[in-house]
Amino acid sequence: MGNDREHAGAPRDLGRSRAAVAAERVIEALIRICGFSAIFFVFSIFLFVALSGSDFIVNRLDLHEFLLSPEWVPTSVSNKRYGTLALTIGTFSVTGLAMLIAVPFGLGSAIFVSEFTGGKVKEVLKVVIELLAAIPSVVWGFVGLVIMNPLIIAVFDAPIGLNVLNGGILLGLMSVPIIVSIGEDAIKAVPDSYREASMAMGATRWQTVVHVLLPAARSGLLAAVLLGVGRAIGETIAVLMATGHAVQIPHSPLDSVRTLTATIASELGETSRGSDHYQALFTIGILLFALTFVVNLSADLIVRGVRGEQR
């Protein structure tokens, strides 16, 4: 690759100073380092997390208990238990509900912004949606605690308003802007010739969107949804405040839960370095890593499948 560039650039080098050529080389090298740095960072973070929990993982981790027991009691005097099932289900229940809300809203407004509106309305909408993305998550958490909690108690006659529903709505709203901006880019990227051809065939605007644009932008839209999922799984403070922070397997959206991320955030500061509890929290970090990896990988495979189908 590098050689191609040099050959391609060689004729242009004529008449340029040595310094300019050298500067270009340096810049090229820097850009290359930037490109590879992502790989370096991912691996070193993974290594750090794995090493921090290694002693516990190797010597005392009961994998069966860790993955399948819902009992997380790390500070018990008599019987410490490190089961993360309830936390994993907590994370997925909140994320799942968030996506139920964010995907239709996000894709819907992406389609609207890209195809059904223009001019001032479009500009205003885009700016406002970006503003929505800029709201700090602690503010969302505050909204969940102060506004949504009493509202959910009143509307759903629930015993408590800090629950999966509350966290799911907040995370959904937090994911919408990401899905909108990336989804809109994906739809916009479909060549105009597709639209023109469809219109020429007598299709309405809506028919064009459903039968032409959405299938053509499928992989981009999926990427948009996945980034939304990533945002939801990784979110910490808002869910810590809004879900009730209770270790239990939820039976309905009105039950309180606790997520993997919130557990790490609330407990890591307290543990003494190197203790079992400390290392168990890092093991949760590895679990989170693995879960997001599986989500990303399966999404990637789906996108490839979709592309293959289209060919």
Binding site: P70, E71, W72, V73, S76, V77, S78, N79, A86, I160, L162, G244, H245, A246, V247, Q248, S256, R258, S266
Partner: peptide
């Protein structure tokens, strides 16, 4: 001493 909290409390 030695007894634990029931899980599911809002912590």
């Amino acid at each position: 001493k030695g007894r634990d909290f029931k899980l599911g409390s809002r912590d």
